[in-house]
């Protein structure tokens, strides 16, 4: 499908040059550390995501991949290092956090739709309250994105009446309604029945083709091959290996990566 012409300057290791803040980056993580109590979850994460870049993050459970992308929109707080999202640095300043969250959409493993609101209300809520968009306009925008994820006919149903795949597509539409510059996906297909995985992945592929900056935690290696510019493998809270998908799958360098790939690719 999509050819993997890498537009980004892929830098596998943390070099000194990478530690400078660059204006054209969508997300920059510089020497990020995080602890849960005594447990060191993220260890010296250095990552530079260019605008329009698609990054797939994989790794064993507990390796810190979800924690890493959740740091980008401050669902988790990092304790050391710097995170710069769309030229805004993440600090404890609540205003900046809100600013960043407006720019960054997120799709969760368990959808996290609001069950007491209809699909349409789920989509219009944030534009109306956060962006102060008039209701009619917000509904128009919502319907546009619901058409794009191919479920406009479900607009007036409640999330509980939809299948898992449909719910996840609503969640994607809900995020898109805020017109984010960056989309984070935290294992978007892991909670889905096998038959529903494809419809969600197709939606994500379309999004990628339109040039959205995406960070995707997933084990869908087919998706990684066809869409990603870079694949990152994490273990023990560290980025162990980072490469273009071609190289990553054909010729993994680190022993841990080879072991992991041999486990999940049969």
């Amino acid at each position: 499908m999509a050819t993997t012409t890498t537009t980004a300057t892929a830098q596998p290791s943390a070099s000194a040059a990478q530690r400078n803040v660059r204006a054209q980056s969508a997300v920059q993580m510089i020497g990020v550390h995080k602890w849960y109590g005594e447990f060191h979850v993220l260890r010296d994460i250095n990552l530079d995501v260019a605008r329009g870049e698609r990054i797939v993050i994989c790794g064993p459970s507990g390796s810190g991949k979800s924690t890493m992308i959740r740091c980008i929109n401050r669902l988790e707080e990092h304790q050391q290092g710097r995170i710069i999202v769309d030229e805004i640095e993440l600090t404890n300043n609540l205003k900046r956090i809100d600013e960043i969250r407006r720019e960054v959409g997120m799709v969760f493993q368990h959808f996290n739709l609001f069950p007491h609101l209809t699909v349409l209300e789920n989509c219009t809520l944030a534009p109306i309250w956060v962006k102060k968009m008039p209701k009619a306009e917000a509904e128009e925008v919502a319907m546009k994105y619901l058409r794009r994820v191919k479920i406009p006919e479900q607009a007036n149903k409640y999330p509980g009446q939809l299948s898992g795949g449909q719910q996840q597509r609503v969640a994607i539409a809900r995020s898109l309604c805020m017109s984010p510059k960056i989309m984070l996906f935290d294992e978007p297909t892991s909670a889905l029945d096998p038959e529903m995985v494809k419809e969600v992945l197709d939606t994500m592929v379309t999004l990628a083709q339109e040039g959205m900056t995406m960070l995707v935690v997933t084990h869908e290696m087919g998706f990684a091959r066809s869409v990603a510019n870079r694949v990152i493998f994490m273990d023990y809270g560290q980025i162990v290996e980072m490469n273009t998908p071609d190289e990553f799958f054909r010729n993994p360098q680190h022993e841990r990566t080879r072991l992991f790939l041999s486990q999940i690719l049969h």
């Binding site: 669902l75 609540l94 809100d98 996290n112 609001f114 809520l125 956060v130 809900r174």
Partner: peptide, 28 residues
């Protein structure tokens, strides 16, 4: 917890999150 995270990820502030998402469900 996902309801809080869903609301926060959309950029809702604490008051909006509570009055629009959490309290309507919790009170029910």
């Amino acid at each position: 917890k996902g309801q809080y995270e869903g609301a926060m990820s959309l950029g809702l502030n604490y008051r909006q999150m509570m009055t629009l998402i959490i309290l309507p469900q919790a009170l029910r």
